[in-house]
Computed example of a mutant assay.
Amino acid sequence: MAPTETRRLYYRAALKLLALGLVLFVLQAMVSGFFSHPETDTALPLAISLDGFEPGEMRLVQWAGQELVVLRRSPVMDAADAAHEERLYDPSSRLSVQPREARNPGRTLAPGYFIAYARGTDLSCPLDLVTPESAAAAGWGGGFTDRCRGSRYDFAGRVYEGQPARRNLEVPAYRADGARIVLGE
């Protein structure tokens, strides 16, 4: 073989190895991104004070690269949830992602509050809060809707039947510590 042919052969082999390495790198990044979860990533703990929350008030909080919704439920919201429970897809939250201790009707460790990732379970679209008063005209009790396909959830993040979403909103692991909740411990 001539020296130029040998050099071309080496260049081709090097380019093919480089392309293979790039493909493997992209594949690894996609797989790790698919299986990563905010609670398994190393995130610093975050304490959220519950002081100053008015009944019916919702706040968005950033933690572990995700947005969380923190809602202080009002008695009207609790009554709306109870009145429409028979219309929920998974009212007992058997199929939900949530801490074991939060398997209760309010899906919470802090009574009167609801904490969840602020994304719908269908297409991970942002959520909007719909008050019971504005939802009454549409024939439901209010709660959350996602901005993409309009899936409806009650004030405990439980999805209604007949919605594009089939899973309740995901509740992160946290602990209630008096007048605050602590994420990431």
Rank of each mutant, 00 (worst) to 15 (best):
F144P: 06
G52R: 14
F155V: 07
E101T: 12
S49I: 14
A43Y: 08
A136G: 09
L129I: 03
A64D: 13
M58T: 13
V130S: 01
R72G: 10
R147L: 12
S74W: 03
A82G: 12
L127F: 02
F53I: 09
S93A: 15
G142R: 00
S49R: 11
G120P: 07
L60S: 13
P75K: 02
R166T: 15
G139C: 05
C148A: 10
P105L: 03
D78P: 08
C148N: 02
L109I: 02
Y117N: 02
T108G: 05
L129N: 06
P75R: 01
A136C: 08
A135W: 05
A110L: 10
C148E: 03
M77Y: 09
E161K: 14
S134G: 07
M77K: 10
R147N: 05
A137R: 12
E101A: 13
P111I: 11
R149D: 13
M77P: 02
P105D: 00
G162Q: 02
L88N: 07
L68E: 05
L127P: 08
S49D: 13
G157V: 02
R59L: 08
L50S: 06
R166Y: 15
P111D: 10
L127T: 01
P132T: 06
F114E: 02
G112H: 05
E161G: 12
A82V: 14
I115Q: 06
R158W: 03
A110Y: 08
R94F: 13
P75Q: 05
E67N: 12
V159C: 04
A165P: 00
L129D: 01
R72W: 03
T108I: 10
V76E: 15
D146T: 02
E57V: 09
F144E: 00
L44F: 12
Y153L: 00
D154F: 01
G150K: 01
A156P: 09
S124H: 13
L123M: 14
R103K: 15
L44Q: 15
D154Q: 09
G56P: 10
A138I: 08
P91H: 02
A137H: 09
G142A: 05
G52A: 14
Q98S: 07
G52M: 12
A135T: 02
P126E: 01
D90A: 01
P132F: 01
Q66V: 12
F155N: 08
P75M: 00
R87D: 15
Q62V: 14
T108Y: 07
A79K: 10
T42I: 14
S93H: 04
S151I: 01
I48R: 11
S151N: 02
C125H: 07
R72M: 14
A118I: 03
M58F: 12
P111Q: 06
A102F: 00
F53S: 04
Y89T: 10
G112Y: 13
E133V: 11
F114V: 07
A138K: 13
P75A: 09
A83N: 07
L46I: 06
L123Q: 11
M77I: 06
E57N: 08
